[in-house]
């Protein structure tokens, strides 16, 4: 697989320019006019409700769906080229793999490194070393010889991350990585991502409907509900924004939705150096009425929220 070329700190690893997409036979677009640039080495969280277009955006980024409007550039290439060149690592939301497969963890992590290897060539020792290195980075070296079906949920997730980073991608995409993981597990997961970023310099995009996943350690947050409600930093996650993004989810559970002005004052997110930047004017929209969102998310480095339960978007 390709060794990532050196990048300048401000180079965009990922760029969306006016991206729109509608599923065949569906009138309402899944995504509308998405424009966003992700800097090299940055960690971006994409927060949005279920059905908000997050998975579609990931599939487009991976080149698994064809764009209908706009442009996506991954490391200056089309998504398909970038994927073929091993520049993108992907950790799926749900492991759909056939876990009964008689494969060891090392064999699974080696798969992306050898899938396009010429059939007559043996797997080089360097490739196996790289797979072991990826396992070591996620703290799963001791699992290398285990059958893939004999892992716990948390272990399996670490192995899936090792598989994604084994080709040394420049961009790592994670789809709902903390679904079904307890708070302690989420904290460990955030720390793991931080250490991967430091060691590999990889750009990370985490997609989730769970504010805790996004708030923990992301430099910037993009809120996605068909279109983009974007902030430079998690501190921009005001209850109004969340109310707007999750309006349909909240309305389904509680009926009319109202965002408490007091809650806005308690919303304190600290993610270091950042500047507010709004791609679109979500504040222009009236806050939903009826339900109080009392949001308090602290996202210093890798910590999970430390007080008051944040709203679960899919509650």
């Amino acid at each position: 697989m390709n060794q990532p070329p050196a990048t300048t700190p401000h180079e965009h690893t990922l760029e969306y320019r006016g991206v729109s997409f509608a599923s065949p036979g569906v009138e309402a677009p899944a995504l509308s006019s998405i424009s966003l640039a992700v800097h090299a080495g940055e960690r971006l969280g994409i927060l949005g409700p279920n059905g908000g277009g997050k998975s579609t955006l990931l599939k487009l980024t991976l080149g698994l769906l064809d764009l209908q409007a706009g442009e996506i550039r991954v490391c200056g290439r089309s998504p398909r080229e970038a994927r073929r060149e091993g520049m993108v690592g992907y950790v799926p939301q749900k492991v759909d793999a056939e876990l009964a497969f008689p494969l060891s963890v090392r064999q699974v992590v080696t798969m992306p490194l050898v899938v396009n290897l010429a059939p007559w060539k043996r797997v080089p020792g360097e490739t196996l070393r790289r797979a072991d290195e990826a396992l070591s980075m996620v703290g799963a070296s001791d699992l290398a010889e285990r059958p893939i079906g004999a892992l716990s949920g948390g272990q399996l997730q670490r192995v899936m991350i090792a598989r994604a980073i084994a080709p040394r991608p420049r961009l790592l995409l994670l789809d709902e990585p903390t679904v079904g993981i307890d708070v302690a597990g989420q904290r460990r997961f955030a720390e793991l991502l931080q250490s991967l970023r430091e060691r590999l310099g990889v750009t990370i995009v985490v997609v989730s409907h769970d504010i805790r996943t996004i708030a923990a350690g992301c430099d910037r947050v993009a809120c996605l509900a068909r279109t983009l409600h974007f902030h430079d930093a998690p501190s921009g996650l005001s209850p109004q924004v969340l109310g707007e993004v999750f309006r349909h989810d909240i309305a389904e559970v509680f009926g009319d939705v109202h965002v408490d002005a007091h809650a806005a004052a308690t919303c304190h997110v600290d993610a270091g150096d950042h500047a507010h930047h709004h791609c679109c004017d979500h504040h222009g929209a009236p806050p939903p009425a009826g339900v109080t969102l009392n949001v308090s998310a602290k996202a210093a480095g890798a910590a999970a929220p430390d007080h008051k339960e944040p709203p679960r978007a899919n509650a």
């Binding site: 799926p92 056939e98 798969m111």
Partner: peptide, 22 residues
Amino acid sequence: WWERRKLIFWAFDETSAPAFGA
């Protein structure tokens, strides 16, 4: 034999394999 690596990756994880260039 020729297709073994692609077949095994696909058979193991049909959903994710294309994301890795399969």
